[in-house]
Nucleic acid binder design. Structure first.
Lengths: 236, 236
DNA sequence: GTCTATACACAGATAGAC
DNA sequence: GTCTATCTGTGTATAGAC
């Protein structure tokens, strides 16, 4: 009795298998990192022969690079959409936190894989960190500057504030085992993530409501928008 | 020319070496995790023969357990000292954040090792998570409850609030590579940690200042204490 | 293109000299 | 107690049958 010979048409098996392999690789690499993962485990996770995997990707290292690459694509998309002068801080930051938390909930392995890479020194994401991510943060800092000038948010170190947003939201993936244990569960459920969002937004509120109110005429009708921790719309 | 034959008196070499090995093990395990670390790398890191290490600890797994054990001891001490009804929220939480950040700064490897263990599933810290840590959090939740009843802090989900404090502070160790890259440095410096503390305390301020002020007579002279983000004293 | 069988290197562990 | 030399299982990678 063969395992999983579903969707294995002889014509286009390669593209089909490639995705299966990448999914399995993300799962295994996210648990044990590059050095700790075994190609054989990845093979078992996608029910494909080990040699098959190495045939497609050439080597374990190339497979690792490909897995990371797929991860980084779209990693920054959420921030571009939500941390923008098109939104008020309260709306934009909640949208961002919700998007990051949804990522932690639906693709925890992706988040964990990235953390593994950072723990190991970030050799394989060096270019991404030094160029792409750094420039990204500089752009977002301009948005916070704008928000502050408009009297929409308190003065804050935008870079370190982003650090806190990343760490709080990604922790719901990376530290899920710890959080679940404290809550007496085996895994976090959807309600836990909602409670997390509410708690994070409570903290973020310290930034959204200006501690030193400016006299901007725009202030009154913007910062009064309530947190709306249950919705996830684009107001515009 | 021999390496490091300093402090190797024939009488008590064992206890001496044991510490050296544990230090090296923490360093290597924190970078690659249990599965990814090589005993030989640990041997090189402490300039001792591989067989020597296995002689002292029996196996790689036993060495890993011992390294984790040393880590968990005192992991919770900071919280017991600072998250206490002896302090006001503003003083206690800043003390706690400072202590956690100092840990991330001075012993980043310890923090990273714990993260590695969580990513791998937490098998070796299962008992700690399910019993010790869980009970610890329940105790701390009582402190937050007390603080809220006294009108000293806003209503907050104590468990998830602790999650945010852990994640924000430990990220300065676990994500140090990423943070440093964004800041254009090779490593975080002491100023970066201070800025991090300030930013975190800005967020924590949302909890310390009650959003729904109670009429407690104690309120006026307690919540007015300023953040004092530069000091670190115990006000009794 | 796919997969079985295998080569080769390396890791953890141990035997035994000192 | 300490450490060199070595055994044995496991891991990556590949050769070659189908």
């Amino acid at each position: 009795m063969k395992k999983a010979d579903l969707s294995r048409e002889p014509g286009v098996p390669r593209r089909n298998n490639t995705q299966q392999i990448l999914n399995a690789a993300e799962k295994i690499f996210s648990a044990y990192g590059f050095a700790g993962a075994r190609v054989d485990d990845i093979a078992k996770a996608c029910a494909l022969p080990k040699a098959n995997i190495l045939y497609y990707f050439g080597s374990k290292e190339e497979l690792y690079r490909a897995t990371l690459q797929r991860l980084l694509v779209g990693w920054l998309a959420d921030a571009d959409q939500w941390i923008s002068i098109k939104h008020t801080p309260i709306v934009g930051l909640e949208g961002y936190v919700r998007a990051k938390m949804e990522f932690s909930r639906s693709r925890p392995d992706a988040s964990r894989l990235f953390m593994h890479e950072l723990l190991a020194g970030g050799e394989y994401v060096r270019v991404f960190l030094d160029s792409t991510l750094r420039e990204h943060v500089e752009q977002k800092a301009l948005v916070f500057e704008y928000w502050h000038k408009e009297g929409l948010c308190a003065p804050v170190n935008a870079t370190h504030f982003l650090f806190t947003l990343w760490s709080m939201t990604q922790a719901y993936a990376d530290m899920q085992v710890q959080f679940a244990a404290v809550l007496g569960r085996r895994r976090l459920n959807i309600t836990d993530f909602e409670t997390g969002i509410s708690t994070i937004m409570q903290l973020v509120g310290a930034i959204c409501r200006t501690s030193q109110p400016l006299t901007s005429h725009k202030q009154a009708d913007t910062i009064q928008q309530k947190a709306a921790t249950k919705r996830n719309r684009i107001p515009q």
